[in-house]
Design a protein around this nucleic acid. Structure first.
Length: 653
RNA sequence: GCCGCCGUAGCUCAGGGGUAGAGCACUCCAUUGGUAAUGGAGAGGCCGACAGUUCGAAUCUGUCCGGCGGCACCA
């Protein structure tokens, strides 16, 4: 006999060889009906697993949050079976669960079309109806390789070889179809249910390596029920409506065009947002004792060789030959032996040059430089994406030169500054990652040990939680990545803090210590918004274009109902402009309905309507974006309220 | 950069081997109307670029460019 423990602390005895299924059936038929898997000693596993003495069991019902992962995983298997039934010459590779769904990568001569997806969905529905049981077998590696080889599944051979020694090689079957899989799975394909949808096809590299062949990936989403699926599809639609590229065009904020791929043309309204942010950050960093500087856009390649960028980052850099292009017809434009310059992809080497001027004392440290540095990076064409991924970007960059024993207090001060700025922008959910040494890097392992240790310790001392991102650091040092979550739950990396022992060494930065000796400063690279372009993109999507008053390009439109009110209204507009508000007048010969709709669609946060009545009474009818009605308020009162709201968060009392 | 899809007016899109259509936006005329579209008229396009097939290409084929979705890379 064996003893099985239940979550409520109760125990029951069963015969040897008892499975989870037997246990749940022994409790209640209705519970058994709803149970699709179990947690055995805390770990999700097959209900058909044989229980051992002392095991703790917890049932996973199909409607449980935990079952979603299983539904999606099983749906991926069902999709793979459907695809192979429809096109037997297709090889299956891997099919994991991802956020909101799953995908499966297939190897096939012909790519899938959207029509194919419909056919696959239909076949999946049938496979689910058939309700074949998921069963598990453990095969020897040789046996598995022989079987998959015979089926022509070459990718699977590689995957089998990748399964760790000592780990069972598990095969999951559903009817005739089977695959190598870690599991667990639910009872039958019927447990997948019908709340799934295949969403897109895409190319993806085998094993995520761009040197490998491209596979056809099919993405799908799957949920416990149709309502959840509908909610999800609705959410996707909402996210599309927030697309900053669409809103940017509609709101006349910026545009992009092919002659300047990846570089933004800021329009007047968009540049208002840009300037408001720059001015805000300028005030914040000044208050935090940074000195603002401005450094060259183009520098001799020799400088980049020295800093290490030329060796490690060259493939992302734009070069500029220091040569006049030939004016001669038919002659080569460039000689090819001119001195090479490069557009800066980062500001750090230039900041070291500023530091290196004159002699710095330990008394000068920590020395903090800030720059709205305009950088160029030659990003791959396929990587470009609206404002989120550009080739010309302006960072709210800064470099702190300090002693190693100041790293901790500087880290703390930086984290506090970052928190205060993010909360001013309305972001409260911030995740921190500690990114460690990448494969391609400068500096010795000893230096990296010290840098990673120092940054990790400093962060721990601030009491903040963080996760480690192995191998994700910058080439010159480890970094903290600050990821913020937006209004619809998406995560964006914005802020960064990087500890760098390498660059000061390479560019020979030094200061005079108390004992008159020359010492190397430590350099901390840091940014909070990341790049202004990207951060504005995030803000647009976060607010669905309805920017908070202090950032809104047009804060208020004063609209008249009859032309008799124009004179009074233009006085109001003048008064508001004088008070520093961004206000526009709309005295057109149009109905008020028309004007209200137009400015609402343009996402202007406030409309002051002036009709005959208001003009006579000295009031305005205030209509706020998104509100149903309006309130009639004395002019001065309405202006003061707007002014208050339009004050940037750092300037409020 | 790689894979797939797409490219017709400022925007959203229809059409399709015999040299183009709608709605919105724009311009003009009338309307002075109380809170998300007043009515009428007009103007606007080498159908992404270049080759090829054809008597004839915006339409078919190819190449390139660009956009979109992924991948890889990354702020």
């Amino acid at each position: 006999m064996i003893t099985v423990k239940f979550p409520d602390g109760a125990t029951r005895e069963y015969g040897v060889g008892t499975t989870g299924t037997t246990v749940v059936e022994s409790i209640s038929k209705s519970l058994a009906k709803k149970t699709v898997a179990m947690r055995r000693n805390g770990e999700l596993s097959d209900l058909s697993d044989i229980m051992e003495d002392g095991d703790a069991i917890e049932f996973v019902l199909r409607d449980d949050e935990a079952a979603l992962e299983l539904i999606r995983h099983d749906a991926a298997h069902v999709m793979a079976e459907a695809v192979q039934e429809l096109w037997p010459d297709t090889q299956v590779t891997i099919g994991p669960v991802i956020e909101n769904g799953f995908y499966y990568d297939f190897s096939r001569a012909e790519p899938f079309s959207m029509d194919d997806l419909k056919a696959i969905e239909k076949r999946m529905g049938q496979i689910i109806q058939r309700g074949a049981a998921f069963t598990r077998e453990v095969w020897s590696r040789e046996e598995a390789k022989r079987v998959f080889k015979a089926k022509g599944e070459d990718c699977k051979i590689e995957l089998i070889d990748a399964v760790k020694e000592g780990e069972d090689l598990k095969i999951y079957k559903q009817g005739q179809w089977f695959d190598v899989c870690r599991g667990p799975h639910m009872r039958t394909t019927r447990d997948v249910g019908q709340a799934f949808k295949l969403t897109k096809v895409a190319g993806a590299y085998w094993r995520g390596d761009s040197n490998n062949p491209v596979l056809s990936r099919i993405y799908g989403t799957a949920w416990a029920n149709k309502e959840q699926l509908a909610d999800y599809l609705h959410m996707v639609e909402e996210a599309e409506k927030r697309d900053h590229r669409k809103l940017g065009r509609e709101m006349e904020l910026f545009h992009l065009q092919e002659e300047a791929q990846g570089s933004v043309f800021w329009h007047p309204k968009g540049f208002v947002i840009y300037n408001a942010m720059e001015q805000y950050i300028r005030r914040k960093v000044n208050a935090a004792d940074y000195k603002e500087i401005k450094t060259p856009q183009i520098m001799d390649v020799k400088m980049w060789e020295k800093s290490g960028h030329w060796a490690k980052f060259r493939d992302n850099m734009f070069v500029v030959p220091d040569e006049t292009p030939s004016m001669e017809e038919g002659a080569p434009l460039l000689s090819g032996d001119a001195k090479l310059m490069a557009l800066k992809p980062m500001n750090c080497p230039a900041h070291v040059q500023v530091f290196n001027q004159g002699i710095k004392s330990y008394r000068d440290l920590p020395l903090r430089y800030a720059e709205f540095g305009c950088c160029h990076r030659n990003e791959a064409h396929g990587a470009l994406h609206g404002l989120m991924r550009v080739r010309q970007m302006t960072q709210d960059d800064g470099h702190i030169f300090c002693r190693e024993d100041q790293v901790q207090s500087e880290t703390e001060a930086f984290c506090d500054l970052l928190d205060s700025i993010y909360s001013d922008f309305g972001f409260s959910d911030v995740k921190i990652l500690l990114a460690t040494r990448p494969d391609v890097r400068a500096g010795s392992d000893e230096v990296w040990d010290r840098a990673e240790g120092g940054l990790g310790d400093a962060l721990r001392a601030t009491g903040r939680e963080f996760e480690v991102a192995q191998g994700e650091g910058a080439f010159y040092g480890p970094k903290l990545e600050f990821h913020l979550k937006d209004a619809i739950g998406r995560s964006w990396q914005c802020g960064t803090l990087q500890l760098d022992f390498v660059t000061p060494e390479r560019l020979e930065a030094s200061y005079v210590a108390e004992d008159s000796s020359r010492q190397r400063p430590v350099m901390m690279h840091r940014a909070i918004l990341g790049t202004l372009e990207r951060f504005i993109g995030i803000l647009i999507e976060n607010h669905a274009g309805r920017m908070p008053m202090w950032l809104a390009p047009v804060q208020c439109v004063v609209a008249t109902i009859v032309s008799d009110a124009d004179e009074v209204a233009s006085e109001i507009v003048a008064r508001m402009k004088a008070a520093g508000l961004r206000v526009e007048a709309d005295f057109r010969n149009e109905k008020i309905n028309y004007k209200v709709r137009e400015h609402s669609v343009a996402k202007v946060p406030a409309i002051f309507v002036v009709g005959k009545r208001e003009a006579e009474e000295g009031t305005v009818s205030v209509r706020r974006l998104g509100a149903q009605g309006q309130t009639v308020v004395p002019v001065e009162e309405a202006i003061m309220a707007l002014l208050e709201e339009a004050t940037p968060p750092d300037l409020r009392d």
